[in-house]
Amino acid sequence: MSLLDYFKTSKVSTASLAKERLQILVAHERSSKNQPSYLPKLQKELLAVIQKYVNVSQDAISVSFEQDDDQETLELNITLPDSQVKGI
């Protein structure tokens, strides 16, 4: 630390900003990297099927894929609106 640095007003260094941004980004990209490529299409088609029966919005459905050492989990989450079944 130099004498001049000592008098400079303390602010967040750009290097620590860079590190923080990278850590978030890299973690996100690593988790999506291992996902099967059919996932977005699967999500779209499932949504279409569900929308035939239930009035759900685009973001009411989420598909996630997780990989552990010995097993793969495909998780499907649908948030249904409060009793709006169209009738089958």
């Binding site: 640095d5 750009t14 290097a15 620590s16 860079a18 990278l22 890299v26």
Partner: peptide, 16 residues
Amino acid sequence: RVKLGEMLSVEDVQDI
């Protein structure tokens, strides 16, 4: 520049 907080350090890059 690392010392001045203007550049990612070796440790930063290795952490990532």
